[in-house]
Amino acid sequence: MNTHPILEINGVSKTFVRRDKTEVAALRDIDLSIPKGAFVSIVGASGSGKSTLLRIIDGLLSADTGKVRVNGAVVTKPGKDRAVVFQNDSLLPWKTVIQNVAYGLTLSGMKWREASKIAQEFIDLAGLKGFETHFPHQLSGGMRQRVNVARGLAVDPEIILLDEPFAALDSQTREIMQTELLRIWQQSGKTVILITHQIDEAVFLSDEVVVFSARPGTVRQKIPIVLARPRNLDVKRSPEFVQFVDKIWKLIEEEVRAAAAS
């Protein structure tokens, strides 16, 4: 058993300066510690800085104070040990599915022969076999997000950061994608951090759900999700599941009301 957490976040704060020079505090004093192989979700009201934290973890943004450590090393820029799956369509429209999945690999200088072989594995894993030479605009929203996830996994990161990956999908597709993600996570053994608005999605997938307060985002509460694995969609109808969702929903509601009152 690995006693050291793979990801440590200590005292991270971030304030943005708007064009009119006013300041917006996005995050304040975030402390989190995430064990290797865990599936952790971060939920919170809009504007609670969840996506900002994700970008700080990846190294796309730098924190004003505090540190992010991956395997003990301080994060200063994006690295091979982390990959992000963004919410929006971030596939390159002029590249085919396989070229998109291999994108991260080819950027790191890998030859196409090798990169395409690895990409093919993850295309198979994501259930996209037969669509290798399709272009993103020829795929449905759900399939595009599969490509997106496959691209993140293909670079073999230790931590995969998901920024509301299913937000743009209809609810049926979203449920299918959730079970797919669960299956892929179990097969790959990666550490996953998921940002989401969907409380049931967070509870269904996670070992732990971190609830953020309204702006500026702070860690309001960490809730371990004690539900047996492997999980399937039936678990969503269990009373325990409903209790977890209710509890988190109440926390977020309080935050939203408090923010509206202030």
Binding site: L60, P78, K80, A83, V84, S90, W94, G104, L107
Partner: peptide, 24 residues
Amino acid sequence: KNLLETARSFNATHIQTFTTVSLP
């Protein structure tokens, strides 16, 4: 901007970002 951020998240150099994202 999403595509530029994606390239950056994969550690692309400035030249790579230009040739694989901006120029196409």
